[in-house]
């Protein structure tokens, strides 16, 4: 389904965010990525839908290589839930969700914000499934709580049945109960539709609870890859330990 082949990323300022990473995610797996701040999680996820291009190596989604010429067909299959929600502040909840489906509309519908009724109905269903209510439909997203905003971000990702979902810390800064709710929504929606999920997390307990598989990163390299039950204390310590290198990099 999703394949990383010797992928590395060096930013213009010389930061090596990823160093020759290779792994595969089979279809409909819920794969959690662990790693301390700056380990390269966001970089990894953004390379899958072409927001960042790898310095070396290649990535493919359903055998389609992630290259600029094919980026349209990649993005049709891949949806992303962003670390900072990345919602459009002055637009309503409904419109924010509809931005996930712009590629299904004609130019007039897009310019006039007049969305097709079947998509609008679908947005309502998805809102309900992620725990948003009718009264939220026409509110500006800035008037919602953090948890509600994150749900809008999830609804936006689900509007067009993606086969791969990239979730970048979808529960960062949410309380434990909402975090659990949101991950269940993610996991349920994924398993119902057979979607693959690549999800970065900071909460170990949640990772253990929801993941089919855990991949741990440190300084842009994989230091663990396996089932949640195999994740040993030593690995966890190594993942989050503060060493000299880590401090200097901060």
């Amino acid at each position: 389904m999703l394949k990383f082949q010797e992928v590395s990323k060096k930013y213009l300022d010389g930061t090596e965010a990823l160093k020759t990473v290779s792994f595969e995610v089979p279809p409909s797996q819920f794969c959690v990525i662990l790693g301390s701040s700056g380990a390269g999680k966001s970089t990894l996820l953004k390379m899958v839908n072409g927001l960042i291009s790898p310095s070396t190596g290649s990535i493919s989604v359903n055998q389609i290589p992630v290259i600029p010429q094919r980026i349209k067909s990649i993005r049709q299959q891949v949806a992303m839930i962003h670390q900072q929600f990345n919602l459009v502040g002055r637009l309503s909840v409904e419109k924010n969700i509809m931005t996930g489906a712009l590629r299904e509309m004609n130019i007039i519908q897009k310019l006039l914000h007049s969305f097709p009724i079947d998509l609008r109905r679908r947005a309502c269903q998805i809102m309900e499934s992620v725990g948003l209510e009718e009264k939220h439909l026409n509110r500006r997203v800035t008037e919602l709580s953090g948890g509600q905003q994150q749900r809008v971000g999830i609804a936006r990702a689900f509007i067009l049945n993606p086969s791969l979902i990239l979730a970048d810390e979808p529960v960062a800064s949410l309380d434990p109960r909402i975090s659990r709710d949101i991950l269940s929504i993610l996991k349920r929606s994924a398993s119902e539709k057979g979607a693959t999920v690549l999800c970065s997390l900071h909460q170990l307990d949640l990772a253990r609870e929801f993941a089919d598989r855990i991949v741990a990163f440190k300084h842009g390299q994989i230091i663990f890859d396996g089932a949640p039950d195999d994740l040993k204390e030593s690995v966890i310590e190594k993942t989050y330990e503060l060493d000299d290198q880590g401090l200097n990099e901060e």
């Binding site: 962003h82 900072q84 990345n86 919602l87 502040g89 931005t99």
Partner: peptide
């Protein structure tokens, strides 16, 4: 942020 999110939807 929002620009990145909408770009990522394939718009």
């Amino acid at each position: 942020g929002p620009q990145e999110a909408i770009e990522a939807t394939g718009a």
